[in-house]
Amino acid sequence: MYAVCLRYARHQLEAQDLMQEGFIRVFDKLGTFRLQGSLEGWVRRIMVTTCINTYRRKAFQNEKFGLENVPDEPVAPLAVENLGEAELLKLVEGLPDGYRLVFNLFAIEGFDHAEIASMLGCGESTSRSQLAKARRMLQQRLGKDVVNEHERKTSH
């Protein structure tokens, strides 16, 4: 679950906070778990909800959810052989809050745009645009060939 928190957090300290908060909720709500479904899925859902709620709060406090003016900084592409979990995690962490949230929910958790819009209280179009920008930013960071290379490697 720590990895889940790391994906949603900006840095490790924030991830630790999220994990603490999430697990405290898990313990508080343990009595409501029906022992029918997967406990892992249940815990994961609570963690994701905790992360979303935290960032929704912060979105109101600090910045608007949609970061339209984030500059597309040109960055040096990474070598495909260097891509491990840790590196990919760092790339996700490096995304702006809004991008990171939508990308996590869509690409990694598997929610669709309608669900994301309902969870975040934004429009589906916002979700789509955030996702597209997140992908573009990651693509820039990874380099154009990296994805194709990765695809080729994993297909073997």
Partner: peptide, 30 residues
Amino acid sequence: HPIDELFHRALHDAEVTPPPAVWEGIVRKR
């Protein structure tokens, strides 16, 4: 999308061991 697929495969089931301080904090807050 290839980007989604790349990150999904790598991170969906990834696990990282949290530092002991996290558990300590959970126990304390609990």
